[in-house]
């Protein structure tokens, strides 16, 4: 019996190491089918790994800038508040928040403010034990490129992605998810607070907010991937509440052609979309976003 257990353990080890002997019972083993054939009703059984991506603070801020909104620094969290955040989950959440605030001020070429936020972010990454070389952090680099918006983008991107990679590498995906959550909530908080629903000029930004319906679903799935994380678990009911409010946003697609340009290596997906969001739904979304943000922020 004991011998059998040892054998079984050994087989398990070898299987893990070499990722499996050829066995027809293995769900993920091949059957010589092509990707086309793999996409069947059975596809879900074959998918070994599903990733969910949520727009980064940089991507979210970029969307805002393109929409032509105004700069309102008073709605941001002060970079000076960094010392109030002393435990890991809170530090991770506020790191995400600062990421969005930094991306926002950067878009409006507020270089000094960018440096201030970046310094606070640097402190947070140190507190979270993300090594400096991983964070690619160099405020001095930024200071040397005061007027270089692209260098700032480079530093912000490197910082965010390196922290994400480092945390996932070290089995701290829950902390990475808290950063993403904080960043997404802050970006949505900024968006909902810089627009006037009744102003027709703001229609594009309103639509952008409505479109977050999709990213919210991805974010909820991401959070659900860490069922044992106490902090993430606490946010789930509020995120579900937000999901219910977003479900009242009506987005209709009319599919058109898909054009692929071989020379440019570019595929353009054409469709016509109609977005309907009522003022009451918008206000409810804004209220819940503020509620979640208030849970993140320490006053």
């Amino acid at each position: 019996m004991k011998k059998n257990i040892t054998c079984l353990l050994f087989v398990l080890f070898v299987t893990t190491l070499f990722t499996g002997c050829n066995n027809s019972n293995n769900t993920f083993q091949n059957d010589n089918d092509t990707l086309n054939n793999a996409v069947t009703i059975e596809h879900t059984k074959k998918v070994k790994k599903i990733f969910y991506n949520v727009p980064s603070p940089i991507e979210m801020a970029n969307v805002l800038h393109e929409s032509g909104v105004q700069y309102k620094p008073e709605i941001l969290i002060s970079f000076k508040a960094v010392d109030k955040y002393v435990n890991v989950p809170k530090q991770a959440l506020i790191l995400g928040v600062y990421g969005s605030d930094l991306s926002y001020v950067r878009l409006f070429d507020q270089i000094q403010q960018s440096i201030n936020y970046l310094s606070s972010i640097k402190k947070l990454t140190e507190d979270l034990n993300i090594p400096e070389e991983q964070g690619s952090f160099a405020v001095s680099r930024l200071e040397n490129n005061m007027n270089n918006r692209d260098s700032l983008l480079q530093i912000v991107t490197e910082t965010y992605s390196s922290a994400n990679a480092y945390l996932k590498e070290n089995e701290r995906g829950n902390t990475a998810t808290l950063i993403i959550l904080g960043g997404w909530i802050e970006a949505l908080y900024i968006s909902t607070n810089i627009v006037d629903f009744d102003n027709p000029k703001n229609k594009q930004v309103i639509n952008r907010i409505a479109e977050q319906k999709y990213s919210l679903s991805n974010l909820i799935e991401l959070i659900k991937g860490y069922p044992n994380d106490k902090e993430l678990k606490e946010y789930l009911p509020l995120m579900n509440k937000l999901h219910n409010e977003f479900s009242l946003v009506d987005i209709k697609y009319e599919k058109r052609d898909v054009v692929t340009d071989e020379n440019k290596k570019l595929t353009t997906i054409n469709s016509i979309v109609t977005i309907n969001i009522s003022k009451s739904t918008f206000e409810e979304i804004k209220k819940t976003i503020t509620e979640i943000r208030n849970k993140i922020i320490i006053y």
């Binding site: 070994k48 727009p55 992605s161 479109e211 991805n218």
Partner: peptide
């Protein structure tokens, strides 16, 4: 291009399928 900052990597075997769900913004 600017990397979106999220690491989507896994060790896969022959025949394995992985999927990534993401939002594409218009005209980006």
């Amino acid at each position: 291009y600017v990397y979106n900052g999220q690491l989507n990597s896994a060790v896969l075997n022959e025949g394995d399928v992985a999927e990534l769900l993401l939002t594409f913004y218009n005209n980006q």
